[in-house]
Amino acid sequence: MAEHRQDLQRELEAIEAKVIELFAMVAEDLARATDALLSGNNEIVKVLAEREAVIESLYPQIEETVNRNILLQAPVASDLRFLLSVLRIMPELELSHDLVENIARRADHILSDDLSPRARGIVERMGELVADMWRQASEAWYQRDSSAAAPLAERDEEMDELHASLIAELASGSMTLPVAMEMTLVARFYERLGDHAVNVARRVVYLPGSLPPD
């Protein structure tokens, strides 16, 4: 049986490759951002800003390709579901990388010594957890594994608990007010990153299992 519409197929595969690239950037950079924050090594901030520029160019490219294919190719079934799913997760990916960059940028203002040992421990755990959640979400997308959403939502509850613990620690007065204020934001960024990972994993359910074909 001849396979028609090879051009469309190639476009879909190119979109998928770029989406995977975005996923990888979020997951990788998350770990680096936490490192930067805790080590005070702000070299990474520059690297992440460069990444942000890459994402800013990738994002409209993907969006344009998706729009064009929806408009001109009249996709249905697996093709349309893939394209719609991409449109839905793109904002999650872009926002998430923004949050990652925002966390890293705190490495400029906060010295790791400014944190109480307890706060430091919680941040470390939050960073590990959310990086792992993003690896899981990426894997779920890549493998078209819709079963990942439920365990991820459970892990997100742990994230919410860590967030509450960190806020309590910040409110305890063990750190200076400017540090506590900055760290309140950081806590919020991690918590949001967890939510976005769950959102992305939930979107996988609408992806056709058969896409992209090998």
């Binding site: 049986m1 028609h4 519409r5 996709p75 249905v76 079934a77 697996s78």
Partner: peptide
């Protein structure tokens, strides 16, 4: 069906 409605079948 998928191959047909997505225009892949020849």
């Amino acid at each position: 069906t998928r191959a047909y409605v997505t225009g892949r079948m020849g």
